[in-house]
Amino acid sequence: MAARGAGDADAMRRWWEELVITIFDRMDGLVGAAHKGRLDDEEHDRAVSLALSRFTFNLIHTFEGVSMGELVNATKTLANFICMDVQRSSMARRTVSLDHGWDADDDGGSSSAWEAAESQRRFALDEHARDMDAFREEAMTHLSPRQREVVDLTFQGAEIEEICDRLGLTRDNAYQLRSRGLRKLAQLLRDHEDAS
């Protein structure tokens, strides 16, 4: 935000565009999952546009003090919220505050955060990776041993074939262990966010 404060609009713009590109697939996917395929292409694109505008607003006004882990969670929350806006009647979903996870003070003192825009972006992404690593490490202990092995390999990027080979599982069994393990992790993440 010092790029903004110092009038370096180009640096700020580049930083923001790179961040949008990095988060786009996740945002697009979360919006799609939130409306469960019920919006047509035009409505979906509008929801993604609105989600990105909300994301940008929150980023600019509250980025300082907000970790990338919170950002991802807030992205999910706002994708749900935006979909409620775009198609209010079709789904029953959580009605959490849009501002959940974005509570940093808008005190106008955030200009230093724009400094060194590119390195900040990388730092933020590294922060997210570290946050998620720490969370996963703790959360994995709550899974069954078999689920843990499957999910661990999944996070390492192993495809289902490789997981079946390495753990001696049938495909159906591996699919199930993966789904259930991830569902449990997501629930733990929600609990973790609620508690903090």
Binding site: T22, R26, G29, L30, A33, A34, V72, N73, K76, L125, H128, A129, M132, F135, R136, F155, S179, L182, R183, L185, A186, L189
Partner: peptide, 11 residues
């Protein structure tokens, strides 16, 4: 399930 994955998925 996909939303759950996207909440914890590595970039």
């Amino acid at each position: 399930a996909i939303a759950d994955w996207l909440a914890v998925a590595p970039t």
